[in-house]
């Protein structure tokens, strides 16, 4: 085990996979000479050269297209998005091509393509640099959608993503890059997709939280415990595939559920999770499933307003009170 920052854990897994598999290469804006805006590719070009660590023009649609072609012909590209908000520039390549090619080829082609980058709030980057994009990729079938909430999961899930033969949307969070945790040194350390982590055990209510919201849910749980409300916190880690079984097992115990994410609440991934809880665990519920997500407005530039738009620890505590009829 080594203590690592989230961003360093990402870089190390990419480097290790590039060393062990020459088909792995990375592509993106300012990732070579600069090493990435957040340092996730720092030093890679020095070790692997400009052919395997490619600085691209500002042309997302173009370099995603190159990645798809490379993946179809046997390479294992890892495409870096400086901000995941920019996937909207490349939506045709991502959702009309990458998501569908394996199906279009009758399952006879594989598409080992990883799209990774950071999203979310925390730096006051405003409307086009602070969004959460997962809902688009959980809606259209074809991508596996991964959202690590800590350095340990980031390392284990990224290695699984690079070795996966289907396209993976690997969603990091800008506010988590400095999160530090013990990460296994094992060069084959992998966390399988579709396996949720129970971050905290409790008997009174279940919180399903993703990415940055996992730490907020845990903080809320600590404060609720002081009042005698024991909350179970589950991090699904991957939205596609989604480990509903772990969630239902928890809801069977607690009878109450709250889903928290940073993406907009309206038509967000929490709507799907809440529906599945009601479909598969209706009889266990003592209260309607609650949802928390960003308000239906553009992410503001002002940090004060930004904080007001996305769920806070206080919002989570209040919501748990509501489902517990306090």
């Amino acid at each position: 085990m080594s203590k690592k920052k989230y961003a360093v854990a990402i870089r190390d897994v990419i480097a290790e996979e590039m060393r062990s598999d020459e088909r792995v290469f990375v592509m993106g804006e300012d990732i070579g000479a600069l090493g990435g805006v957040f340092g996730c590719t720092r030093g890679l070009q020095k070790e692997f050269g400009t052919l395997r660590v490619l600085d691209t023009p500002i042309s997302e649609s173009g370099f995603v297209g190159i990645g798809i072609g490379a993946a179809l012909t046997g390479m294992r590209p890892v495409i870096d998005f400086m901000y995941l908000d920019f996937v909207y520039v490349a939506m045709d390549q991502l959702l009309n091509q990458a998501a569908k090619l394996r199906y279009m080829y009758g399952g006879r082609a594989s598409l080992p393509l990883v799209i990774r980058g950071q999203q979310g709030v925390g730096r006051g980057n405003a409307g086009t640099h602070s969004q959460s994009i997962e809902a688009f990729f959980t809606h259209i079938p074809g991508f596996k959608v991964v959202m690590p909430s800590n350095a340990y999961d980031a390392a284990g899930l990224l290695r699984t993503a690079i070795r996966e033969n289907n396209p993976v949307m690997f969603i990091e969070h800008k506010a988590l890059y400095i999160q530090t945790e013990e990460v296994p040194d094992d060069p084959d350390f992998m966390i399988p997709f579709g396996q949720a982590a129970v971050k905290r055990s409790g008997s009174d209510a279940t919180i399903v939280a993703t990415s940055l919201m996992v730490s907020r849910a845990l903080e809320a749980a600590e404060r609720l415990a002081e009042e005698g409300i024991e909350v179970e916190v589950i991090d699904p880690r991957t939205l596609i595939p989604f480990d509903i079984d772990t969630v239902i097992t928890s809801v069977k115990k607690t009878g109450r559920a709250l889903v928290v994410h940073e993406a907009h609440k309206n038509n967000g991934p929490g709507s799907e999770i809440a529906s599945q809880i009601m479909e598969k665990g209706f009889r266990y519920l003592d209260a309607p499933v609650a949802r928390l997500g960003a308000k239906a407005c553009t992410l503001p530039f002002s940090l004060v307003l930004e904080n007001a738009v996305v769920p806070s620890v206080e919002d989570i505590i209040q919501s748990v009170h509501e489902i517990c009829y306090h």
């Binding site: 009878g255 209706f282 009889r283 266990y284 519920l285 003592d286 209260a287």
Partner: peptide, 10 residues
């Protein structure tokens, strides 16, 4: 009461 939660019924 006329209403009970699904869990209460269970």
């Amino acid at each position: 009461s006329r209403y009970a939660s699904p869990r209460a019924r269970w």
